[in-house]
């Protein structure tokens, strides 16, 4: 296959974002890094065509960051981008409100309850106890433990479905 990039002209930012849509979270294969909200910036050097991508972790101790970085590099290089630099920082700290609507749908598809939108409400401890059941979409649920299989997941119980389910934590 020919490379998709024109070597004489830098690739547009919207094209880069489109390619990044195909890069999924290493642990939740239904959601792209874009919809997860961890891609905080993309810049294309007008002269060299080098692409800089700014990533931020969902949780500071997330062990998947190195994989995300690698996957971004691989995806863009495979499309013929001449050079890729991925920077990880918390300049713009991730919050669960950075999930896009498509991202929330992708979480539901994976049977993960998306976090409630915080907006400008006070993010107090009560907030953490709310979750929508990914099966019946009701909210007759209770928090069983704020720590689940990964740092970004909590475990809740649906009193209607009588089942445990996982939630992507609001933060």
């Amino acid at each position: 296959m020919l490379t998709e990039a024109n070597s004489h002209q830098p690739i547009g930012k919207s094209q880069i974002l489109e390619w990044l849509q195909a890069v999924k979270d290493p642990e939740i294969p239904t959601i792209s890094l874009i919809d997860l909200g961890v891609v905080r910036g993309v810049e294309v050097d007008a002269v060299t065509g080098k692409v800089s991508v700014h990533l931020t972790p969902t949780f500071a101790g997330c062990p998947a960051m190195d994989y995300m970085k690698r996957d971004v590099e691989r995806a863009l290089l495979a499309h013929g981008v001449p050079a890729v630099e991925v920077e990880i920082s918390m300049r713009e700290a991730w919050t669960s409100d950075m999930l896009t609507e498509a991202g929330r749908q992708a979480l539901r598809q994976h049977k993960l309850s998306p976090p409630p939108v915080i907006g400008n409400q006070v993010f107090d401890l009560d907030f953490l106890e709310y979750a929508e059941c990914p099966n019946c979409h009701g909210n007759n649920t209770e928090l069983r433990t704020p720590f689940g299989a990964t740092l970004c997941r909590a475990v809740h119980y649906c009193n209607d479905c009588r089942q445990l389910f996982e939630q992507f934590k609001p933060v």
């Binding site: 991730w94 993010f123 401890l125 953490l128 106890e129 704020p146 720590f147 740092l151 934590k169 933060v171």
Partner: peptide, 19 residues
């Protein structure tokens, strides 16, 4: 301050768990 703004959200879960 940037790091703190990130960590405080995570620490809420620690406090909630302890409570």
């Amino acid at each position: 301050a940037q790091v703190a703004r990130k960590l405080r959200g995570e620490l809420k879960y620690h406090a909630l768990h302890a409570n």
